[in-house]
Each structure stands twice: as structure tokens, then as C-alpha cells.
């Protein structure tokens, strides 16, 4: 359509492709702050888009969920709004792609190399295709969100140590069942309530990337971190398929390539930040324990029951083996 939208700061919907006079604006919503690596890398992405499009495309950034919660944004994207948001497989699992959830099971990946191999596989491409049919297109998946570690009030080394311990998890079936399978008592709770709950013993522990653990000041109330890296948390940026189709082929290509490039920048920042946070946690008196290969094997072993719960999650037949094979294992 050619709506004569004179005052478009929004350039939405039909105003899309050929309109050179007013730039195509896309709004990017995410939960992180501007200071976190993700926040800085999105800014980089916006710069890249502006530069490489010669000013004909523009990303408007909304940190701290200012544009709305993730599910709200995704519904809006399906309705054709000009929005991009950050989301990961645990979310897509709840969104009707149950198989994606397995990537966020405990101890699924051994190394980040495994992650990158999987992202290049046909299996992953198929999943993205299914998501596209549901109205969402993934622009880039190579963004490291962090490696999730286990922080506890008393020292934990082996799976036996967390038996019955109350560990806080985000309210998602995959996360919750993952820790229940390891023998802990999973407590879904809003992140904002965790500090006091750790302090008074309602919780025994919490898991998250080091940056979040430090950002929430949990080091004041829990003194042990086990470097489990139980989830290699990569995340993705997605856009509404309908809106994407209103853009020209070059514009679409530009979004894909810049998202990927900014992702590499993000991963560099994440790596630096991880080092810094680790040091700050140590300085705050936290004891950080690395796992030996044998101990890691023990945790992997303990996580196995989770991968036999396919019926609970609605996974495809033999999903675990399929995905392992896609990683070349």
C-alpha cells in the first residue's frame, strides 16, 4: 500500500520498501540494560544498520522491556508490527516448537563449538523454518547470552550435594524440569525476589550467567559458585515474518548480515565481561569452584533422566539422538 504517512517516525507496515524519503524504522525491544554487553552490542547493530543502509533503515532501541514484555512483543510481531526482539529456545519451546527446548536442558552442550556446529546444521534450519511458518523469522542466532553457573549458600560440587536444595529458576517448564531431574527442588520465582529469599533461606541457590549473579548482588548472600556451565545460553533476535516480507531483498539481507556481525561483537564483549565479573565475584569473597572432567561427567550422567522426559515436553521421537547427531556426535 502507499499510505501517504507524512509524519512517520514510525514507517510501519505498508510504508516499507520503496519509500526512500522516510527511513524504515524498526523498533528493537529487549530486557537487558544499556550497560550490559547485549545492550552495547545492540547499539553497535543499530550503528551498522544505519551506516550500511545509508540512512534508509533505522533501529530504535528500547532497553529494560520498555516496549513491552517478550510475549507481548512476539504477539505484536505476529500481527505485523515493525518490531525485533530477543528470545531463546526455551521461549520458542513454549511457543509451539517443543523440540527447541532440548537445547536448554542441563549439560546438553559440552563446548561452544558444539553450539556453532548445531546452528549450522539442517536440523536447526528446519526448526527455524517451522518458526517462520508461525510468523517469526530468526535474524541471527550467534549471540552468546552467557554460560549459566550454579550459585549456592553452601558449597556444592557433586550432584548429590544439591539433592533437595531449593534452586530458583525462571518460570519455564524446561528450566524447572531440568533442575528437578538433577535432584534439586526447582523454585520458579521472579528474579527481583531472589535476593531476600536467599538471605533468609527460602532459597538455597540460584543459577544464571555470572553477569546477572553479580548484577543482582547475590554475592552478598551466597558465597559459592560452581562453574557448571550447565547451559550454553545462546540467544536469537527475531522479527515478524509478515513485516520482514514488506522489506526489499537487500534490506532483508542487510538485517541478517548486520545482526550476525553485531553478534560477533557481542561475543567479544561477553568474554571480557565474564572475566571481569569473575574477578569481581572473587573480590567480593565468593569461592569459585571449577569442575574436573570426572565431576562434569557425573553431572552429565545425573542430567540424563531429563532427556527421557520427551513425552512431558512433546518432543519428537528420538530427539536427543537426532540433535546429538546434528552436532556430529
Amino acid at each position: 500500500s502507499s499510505t501517504p504517512n507524512t509524519d512517520t517516525a514510525d514507517g510501519t507496515g505498508g510504508a516499507g520498501a520503496a519509500n526512500a524519503a522516510s527511513p524504515v524504522t524498526i523498533q528493537v525491544g529487549f530486557e537487558n540494560t544499556n550497560e550490559e554487553p547485549i545492550g552495547q552490542a545492540v547499539e553497535k547493530w543499530a550503528e551498522l544498520v544505519e551506516e550500511q543502509s545509508g540512512g534508509t533503515m533505522k533501529l530504535e532501541l528500547f532497553a529494560n522491556s520498555a516496549l513491552g514484555s517478550k510475549s507481548e512483543l512476539i504477539d505484536q510481531m505476529v500481527m505485523g508490527e515493525n518490531i525485533i526482539t530477543i528470545a531463546d529456545g526455551a521461549f520458542y519451546a513454549d511457543y509451539g516448537l517443543p523440540d527447541m527446548g532440548i537445547l536448554y536442558g542441563p549439560f546438553f552442550f559440552d563446548t561452544w563449538e558444539d553450539v556453532w556446529t548445531l546452528l549450522d546444521s539442517d536440523w536447526y534450519a528446519d526448526e527455524c523454518e517451522k518458526l517462520k511458518e508461525k510468523g517469526l523469522t530468526i535474524l541471527a542466532s550467534n549471540w552468546i547470552y552467557g554460560e549459566r553457573e550454579l550459585m549456592t549458600k553452601s558449597k556444592v560440587v557433586t550432584p548429590a550435594d544439591i539433592k533437595g536444595k531449593k534452586i530458583r529458576l525462571a518460570s519455564s517448564q524446561i528450566y524447572v524440569e531440568g533442575f528437578n531431574a538433577l535432584g534439586a527442588t526447582a523454585v520458579p520465582m521472579a528474579l527481583g525476589d531472589v535476593y531476600t529469599s536467599l538471605q533468609n533461606g527460602t532459597l538455597d541457590g540460584v543459577e544464571n550467567p555470572l553477569s546477572t549473579l553479580y548484577g543482582q548482588s547475590f554475592q552478598e548472600v551466597a558465597k559459592y559458585i560452581l562453574m557448571t556451565g550447565h547451559i550454553k545460553n545462546f540467544t536469537t533476535w527475531c522479527i515478524g515474518t509478515d513485516f520482514l516480507n514488506t522489506l526489499s531483498a537487500e534490506q532483508q539481507e542487510l538485517l541478517y548480515s548486520t545482526a550476525e556481525e553485531a553478534g560477533l561483537y557481542n561475543n567479544e564483549l561477553q568474554e571480557q565481561a565474564d572475566e571481569e565479573y569473575r574477578q569481581m565475584l572473587v573480590d567480593a569473597g565468593v569461592e569459585i569452584t571449577e569442575l574436573t572432567d570426572d565431576q562434569l561427567a557425573e553431572w552429565k550422567e545425573a542430567a540424563q533422566p531429563f532427556y527421557e522426559m520427551g513425552d512431558t515436553f512433546g518432543w519428537s521421537e528420538g530427539l536427543y539422538d537426532t540433535v546429538q547427531a546434528a552436532m556430529g556426535k
Binding site: D10, T12, G13, G14, G68, E72, Q76
Partner: peptide, 20 residues
């Protein structure tokens, strides 16, 4: 604002009640 999907109107007005 014809460019904006009007279902968003209802989405916000309904999910706005959704607060723990």
C-alpha cells in the same frame, strides 16, 4: 495511524490487567 495493527489496542488493554 493506519500503519499500526489495531489488534495491539486490544492486546495492551487486556494484558494490562496481567500483573503479579
Amino acid at each position: 495511524s493506519p500503519g499500526i495493527n489495531s489488534a495491539v489496542f486490544a492486546q495492551q488493554a487486556i494484558t494490562g490487567a496481567e500483573s503479579v
